[in-house]
Every structure is written in structure tokens, then in C-alpha cells.
Design a protein around this nucleic acid. Structure first.
Length: 447
DNA sequence: TCTGGGGTCCTAGGACCC
DNA sequence: TCTGGGGTCCTAGGACCC
């Protein structure tokens, strides 16, 4: 177990029944009553059920129809208000960043904090007091939303700790006690063990993490695959050295929609593709990325689901181009019987925006050759302007400080500005001809 | 009126290159 | 004449997470 910490310095926070808790905070009449948040249409599913609704059997991912059957009259069924949840989430994440610069949001209602990167007493009483104080501050700052905290020597142990005492829980797993805590729990408690893996394990009599511990690495990998098996083998031994990381670049962007009724009309299908491509393209453009692979997802009337994808020579972020590929891919799938869902996604993302001037750094460094040219051309060549920015180039901005170019396109340049030593600075997308943005060290290839 | 929407990671086969 | 591997890219599907 190299690399596993000796002190309980990984904290996991999970906000309790988060969407429902925000609704109950904002609508006092809902407090103490069953609340179900999610899709309210005929094909909707439950995102979050309040603890009062869980008492009647309502659960996340259940169809809303079924939740209606289970819950009594007087249960509130609400659509999602994502913006409100996002604002509340940001308040909580800001409190976590006061504890440590190393905060890893996992989702809107979950995060890890590396307490070793802050100034803290990492004894068991020390982190227990810290967690109690954090919970109190979250409740005050959010107007009553509670969270469950787990603290341990690794992410896996911290996460399991936060599950043990929900809601409004606090669990510190002391160093050395990891296996005693883990082994009685069902294998489903481990991240990465879902219904399929649990079923396979159950068939050979493996129910608890303790049972899993007795399996050899060879047996485990032959049962669930190389990577997954090796991962579970280590988790059963509380051998988990995954670091807490602040930011990860997105790898794909997608949008999908389940229709109220299955669609067959080609014009309607085409219009849906356009709408989805527009959502994906505008999100790509807002984040200053583009991608080379366009994927179409189709769910048929019988719930059978398939994907078709095409990888292009150039990265795209233009909704019209994305839609064009998606139309072609849809043309090659069987639509008879009707389609329940369509989805459009772009992956293979790079920070370079689309456009003919997108170029590898090696191509852009070419101005160096001009230095060696005996004479500059008499007339500047007509056509597009030179590439002003290349990835990795150091730049300065009077307000944003110094940074480096992360990606550049025809009209845009994405710059990562340097933050304090321990945290990466903000990423900003600017107009390529923004006069405030200057090379930090102008290359002098002009005579 | 069964079964959302946004993601990540892994596997496996075929193409292609060295 | 016969017989190779490894590595990477692409496509499709599946498991899993919140």
C-alpha cells in the first residue's frame, strides 16, 4: 500500500437530497413534506426524492409515474430549477475552498477536499472538529441545506464514510481502521460496482467487500476485466492513492432528448437534430473548444439504443457542420417503428477552435524561417492574416496578468492566466485581435 | 404512460503502419 | 516460404456515476 496516507486528510462531502433540499428551503410550505424533483412529463424520471418521499419508496432514477403511485396525496412533484441548485452549489464549493486549495467537485452536490493541502490539525479529533464546523457553516450559508461528510486516508474511504451516516452525517475513519469499516459492507458500496458487476460477484458467492478481499487478482480480472478487476482488488484492500485534482478538461459535450411521443416524421427528426446540434455547438464555442468526432445517439421505440459516429480531419464547433454530420449518420439507421430519443455529441476535444488557420505549434513556429530568408517578399502576400497566436506562447494582459495560449482559432484565442502557485489561473477566451493582449516576448523576425 | 440527461472509462475488433 | 508482433486510430457498445 505505497502511497496511502497515514493521516485522515481526504474529506468527501455529499449534500443530502440536494435538489429537494433547495426546494424545501425556497418554499417553506414544503418542509417536512415528501418532495420529488425531476421530470414531470409522462416519460420523466426522479432526480431527487426528499427523505420524507424516500420513506414511501421514492428513489432517484425511478420513473416519476412510479413515484406518484408510491407517494401519498400532498406529495409535491416539481420540475428541476438547475440555476438555483447551481448557485447553492457554488456557495458550498466556496466554503470548501476556504479549507484547502485542492477541491475536486465531482458533481453539483459532491466534492473531495485534500486537507493536507491546507493548514490543519490532521489528528482524528482535529478533523472531526473541522468537519463539524464545516457542516454548521454550510447550513448557515445555504439557508438550511445539510451535507454528509466522510474523512479518511483515501478517496474511497472518505466516500464510503460519507455514506455511512446519512443524512447530516459525520464519519471519520481512523487510520488503520479502514478494513474493519469496509469489509462488512456490500460490494455495491464500492465506487465502480454497479448492478452488472454485483450480479457477477454474487454468482460466485461474493457479497461483501470482505468476500472480495479473499478473491485472487487472477480470478477477479477474469471475472470483470483487466482494469476493473485490478481496481477492485486494490479497493478491497483500501489501497487507493488517487489524488484530489482541482480541474479536469472536458472530453466530450453532448445533448439528447427523449420525446413525449416516439417520432417518425423526417421533418420533425431533422428539426430535433438541428436543435441538439445548436445546443452542443454553442456550448463548445462558449468553452473555446471544438472536437473531431461527431456522434449520433438513437433510442428506438423498443428502447434499443445505438450510436453512430464519424471522425473528421478537422475539429468542429459550428452547429451547422455538426448537424450536417448528424443528419448523414441518422440517414443510415433504421427509423421504422419510431424513435424515442435522439442525441448529438462531439468528442475528441481540443482547445483549438475550428478554422483553416488552426495549426500545430510546429507549423506556426515557421516565422523563424523568415529570419533566415535573405529578403522579405516585396509585397505582402494577400489572403488571411498571419496566425497571431500559437499554443504555448507566453502572453500578457494589462488586467488579467500573464498567461499562455491554450488554443487559438480564426477569431479567438484562449488563454490560461497564471494563478497563485498552487492553483491554475482562470481560462479566458478573447478576440484574436484584442489590442490588450500582447506577446510577453515579441519574436523579432522582422529586420 | 416503465425506464432522463450529462458525463467517464474500458473493451474489442479491424485497419494500417512499422 | 512462412509467419510475426506492437502501436495507434477508429468505431461500437457497455458499465458506471450523479
Amino acid at each position: 500500500m505505497e502511497g496511502v496516507r497515514r493521516e485522515p486528510s481526504v474529506l468527501h462531502l455529499d449534500l443530502d437530497a440536494f435538489f429537494a433540499a433547495v426546494e424545501q428551503r425556497d418554499k417553506p410550505s414544503l418542509r417536512g413534506r415528501p418532495v420529488v424533483v425531476g421530470g414531470t412529463g409522462g416519460r420523466g424520471v426522479v432526480s431527487t426524492a426528499s427523505y420524507e418521499a424516500r420513506a414511501f419508496g421514492a428513489r432517484s432514477a425511478m420513473s416519476t409515474i412510479e413515484a406518484r403511485r408510491l407517494c401519498p396525496a400532498g406529495t409535491a412533484f416539481l420540475g428541476t430549477r438547475f440555476a438555483a441548485y447551481k448557485r447553492t452549489s457554488e456557495v458550498v464549493m466556496a466554503l470548501l475552498r476556504e479549507l484547502s486549495p485542492l477541491v475536486e467537485p465531482v458533481s453539483i452536490d459532491e466534492a473531495y477536499v485534500d486537507l493536507a493541502a491546507g493548514e490543519h490539525d490532521l489528528s482524528v479529533p482535529g478533523v472531526t472538529a473541522l468537519a463539524a464546523d464545516l457542516k454548521a457553516r454550510i447550513a448557515v450559508a445555504t439557508g438550511g441545506v445539510t451535507g454528509s461528510v466522510g474523512i479518511g486516508t483515501s478517496k474511497a474511504v472518505a466516500k464510503i464514510g460519507s455514506e455511512l451516516d446519512k443524512p447530516d452525517g459525520l464519519t471519520v475513519v481512523p487510520p488503520g481502521q479502514e478494513l474493519a469499516v469496509l469489509h462488512p459492507l456490500p460490494v455495491r458500496a464500492l465506487g465502480g460496482v454497479g448492478p452488472a458487476t454485483a450480479e457477477r460477484l454474487a454468482q460466485i458467492g461474493v457479497k461483501t467487500i470482505g468476500d472480495l478481499h479473499r478473491l485472487s487478482l487472477v480470478d477477479l480480472t477474469s471475472l470483470v476485466g483487466q482494469a476493473h478487476g485490478a481496481g477492485l482488488y486494490r479497493l478491497a484492500r483500501a489501497d487507493d492513492d488517487r489524488p484530489v485534482v482541482t480541474d479536469r478538461e472536458a472530453k466530450s459535450v453532448s445533448a439528447e432528448e427523449t420525446f413525449a411521443r416516439d417520432l417518425t416524421d423526417p421533418a420533425r427528426l431533422a428539426a430535433e437534430i438541428e436543435a441538439l446540434a445548436t445546443r452542443v455547438g454553442s456550448r463548445l464555442q462558449r468553452s473555446g473548444t471544438s472536437g473531431r468526432t461527431v456522434t449520433l445517439k438513437v433510442r428506438r421505440y423498443d428502447f434499443s439504443t445505438l450510436t453512430r459516429s464519424q471522425t473528421l480531419a478537422h475539429a468542429v464547433d459550428d452547429p451547422r457542420q455538426i448537424a450536417e454530420i448528424a443528419h448523414r449518420l441518422l440517414g443510415a439507421v433504421d427509423r421504422s417503428g419510431g424513435l424515442r430519443l435522439l442525441g448529438v455529441g462531439v468528442s475528441g476535444l481540443s482547445p483549438y477552435a475550428q478554422g483553416d488557420l488552426f495549426a500545430e505549434p510546429s507549423e506556426v513556429v515557421q516565422p523563424v524561417e523568415v529570419v533566415e530568408a535573405a529578403e522579405p517578399p516585396a509585397d505582402p502576400a494577400p489572403g488571411p492574416a498571419v496566425v497571431l497566436w500559437y499554443p504555448g506562447q507566453d502572453v500578457v494582459h494589462p488586467e488579467l496578468g500573464s498567461g499562455w495560449v491554450w488554443g487559438s482559432g480564426l477569431n479567438r484565442v484562449t488563454v490560461r492566466f497564471e494563478g497563485p502557485r498552487t492553483t491554475p489561473g482562470p481560462v479566458r477566451t478573447l478576440a484574436a485581435d484584442d489590442p490588450d493582449l500582447q506577446p510577453a516576448d515579441p519574436p523579432d523576425w522582422t529586420p
